[in-house]
Design a protein around this nucleic acid. Structure first.
Lengths: 219, 219, 219, 219
DNA sequence: CATGAATGAGGTTTCATTCAT
DNA sequence: TATGAATGAAACCTCATTCAT
């Protein structure tokens, strides 16, 4: 996939290593200053490389975006796949609880990438790139929709508008990345997961008591 | 307020008119292409002006951001103030319902500006500007917090974490602006307001039935 | 002479009056900021005129230089002419004394103009203008040369190099205009005239005593 | 010193070499056309460089002035320092003679720089730069004042106003730079030094004969 | 006569990219 | 492979001048 980016280097391992480094340092700079406001010279300096060397591993400045998008896509796809084995739970509530924990933790790991694409993504048009990012978003919503549907069918949840609710849930988790300027002042990761999960679950249930009662009966 | 931006024009009305136009056309371009990717010549062309004429009404490209932020600030402040007279409702539920309707409708009106600041804001550092934008955000959260607190005290709502819940509510409304690529495919404004309000209220209440019963008693 | 500058005005008196005002205000600005660094807008503002009105009295920014040079030329010519009637003195020393007084006083009157042409003149090439300025300079040197020659022939002065001495004398007087940043801290006009005249005369004479003795005999 | 000017080059020697060249070519253009009237493109062309390359060695057009002033300051300070060892002369007259020769020869070397600052200096305001240029001027005047004072105390010179005389002497030398349009038509450097020195010495002495007599006695 | 909004050529500066070493 | 000096297109901005009102 990265192979489509022009390189002068023949050593594939070195390419991988250097590109990963360039990607990482560029992301830091892009987050801080924005893509257009960051110069190639700054990127090279942050990578402890000369400009010439940098251009041995990338074909153009835009290629760095492509690297980043490849990264994001790979990560999110892997993540999405991992949803599927969240199946050995006695209640859908527990299933959702586990899914949210996993999702938010994933968000926490790649928050820089997420924020970057939320903020800058639209304008930095790299062919077929942005669509993929958002198709992953849509996929996440679908996963949640399925869980909600399952919960409603089993009587654990009661939701008027499953699509909107699923969309809301993904958004409420995603904000851990893009509203951190607000949230980090008030919560650490674990607190956010716990509190947010409770609020979300509460919004889906008949009455918390009922659900608990039902869960007891079910087990 | 705009007066701090350099101008060569002496006609105050004309300045206002032209600046409003420049602001609007620039916003369209910035939304489509991004701030840094939009050139002064493009802005001038979009405004059917020469570059020189453009510079009679602004002092620099950055000043356009300042105009936008002034706009956003003014709008949001006016909106925030209007929250206060949402007081003649028999139940807090109705009060919140009205507030959400008003808030989302406002969002709908200035969505371009909001999206722009969500996306571009951080990098486009104009002194003291970004802080103000987000202080308005925080203010909105506070308004919701107050309503939730009132509702909890009166027994209408039950919320574990009022701050987080309030933050979530604002976010769930804001998305009408910045997640429109997803939402517009599925809902029109009225649908969104109605559905989202129900989901939010549902997440705050004991049981919907209880609330309705209570409301009946109160009237 | 001014008539060669384009104007839209038909009222000759008004033209003269306005042009004089423009000239004066422009000179002040040019002295402070330099010709190129002064904008037409600034000149118009200093003249309490609109830009359009300003252009009714001048054809271009360069015309202001032409006005100034016309002024300088007229003034210097008039001054030069006045040298001629400095003839009814018993000694050449007295003649030179009177000439220097007159010259420095004239310099004092139009020092802004002089300084401007010394500093800015060369680059601001207005056809045939700069040459005239300096031909006046050369004329002044010639006048002094004649006085010195007369003084030497009569035995009052003794000068090795009359041309260089005359040139020096003019320079020593001119500095009252262009070295004022140094001289004004130490001397007022009268002091400068008196002290400088004595130094110059002293440099030209055998011994001061001899000259005085000779003068006594001659009378 | 030059290090405070922004550069993209990392090769210090090259920077020095290129800046010296830029300085020299710019000075020629500035002398001919004036600072504001000379464009960056013209400077680049005169340096056989692209505009981009030029900007690798300077941070802005104004920096060229800074380079020039650094140059002028360095040169004049070195020169001023060299005055001090003008001490092994039997008469103060010889001392002054040597000092004037040295001073005028120095002026001759950096005449372009001197003329440029005399003409353009005031408007081209680079912080703390102009003051330094003229403080060196004042320093030169002081050196001459000291020599004159010594000469008067020893009876070799007789001067009514030592400060003004010293100021005059510096000016009479400086003109070799800024009145060359007049002087070069009539004198070569050696002639100017010789003739001017005699005129100056003559202006300071009782009678030339007396001085010579005195010198004979003193030896 | 007076005004000042409009113009656009041309100025300074930046920066992604190349290529000789 | 690594370097960084060189390039020049294109960005932002200025300002003398015009002309409709």
């Amino acid at each position: 996939m990265d192979r489509s980016i022009r390189t002068f280097s023949k050593n594939s391992d070195l390419i991988q290593k250097r590109r990963k480094f360039i990607k990482q340092k560029s992301l830091e700079l892009f987050m801080e200053k924005g893509y257009s406001e960051t110069t190639i010279r700054e990127i090279a300096a942050a990578c402890h490389m000369s400009v010439g060397t940098l251009y041995h591993y990338i074909g153009s400045k835009e290629d760095i975006l492509l690297l980043m998008s490849n990264d994001a896509k790979a990560f999110l796809k892997e993540f999405a796949a991992s949803f599927i084995d969240v199946s050995d739970y006695s209640t859908v509530t527990d299933k959702l609880r586990a899914a949210l924990k996993k999702y938010i933790e994933s968000i926490d790991e790649i928050q820089n990438t997420i924020v970057f694409w939320y903020q800058a993504g639209k304008h930095l048009y790299v062919t077929g790139l942005f669509e993929n990012i958002f198709s992953v978003e849509e996929f996440s919503v679908q996963i949640i929709e399925e869980i909600l549907t399952e919960g409603c069918q089993g009587g654990e949840f009661r939701v008027n508008n499953i699509n909107l609710a699923a969309n809301n849930i993904i958004l409420l988790c995603d904000q851990w990345a893009f509203r951190r300027w607000y949230l980090r002042k008030r919560y650490i990761l674990e607190e956010f997961i716990e509190n947010q999960t409770e609020l979300i679950l509460n919004s889906l249930c008949w009455k918390q008591e009922n659900v608990l009662a039902k869960a007891d009966l079910g087990s």
